[in-house]
């Protein structure tokens, strides 16, 4: 079970969090034209890297904040966690 450092609450067990996918995906701006290709990429296309991955988790049974976690998908090593407003690396 992962041990995730919530930037607001500190180290907490994985079961307090829920996973939210790739954190680097950016939603196209609202009220702006978007090509079908860009939209499809946003909705469906995700990389599935082996290694470092920046992802979203929500501290659902805690402060309810969405946070960024940089994790190795193969070893589960967590290199860094941050608030969503902060940059990783």
């Amino acid at each position: 079970m992962l041990y995730i450092k919530c930037p607001y609450c500190g180290l907490r067990a994985q079961k307090e969090f829920s996973y939210g996918g790739d954190a680097t995906v950016k939603r196209p701006n609202i009220n702006e034209e978007v090509s079908s290709e860009d939209w499809d990429n946003f909705v469906y296309m995700r990389k599935s890297p082996r290694g470092k991955h920046i992802e979203l988790w929500q501290h659902i049974a805690g402060c309810r904040q969405w946070i960024k976690v940089q994790r190795d998908t193969a070893t589960h090593e967590i290199f860094q966690t941050a608030k969503v407003t902060e940059e990783i690396r």
């Binding site: 829920s18 939210g20 939603r27 609202i30 979203l56 929500q58 659902i60 309810r64 904040q65 969405w66 969503v84 407003t85």
Partner: peptide, 13 residues
């Protein structure tokens, strides 16, 4: 609730 929080915290802060 999680859905709303997602958009407020991440997409449209």
């Amino acid at each position: 609730l999680s859905h709303l929080e997602y958009y407020l915290q991440i997409v449209w802060p």
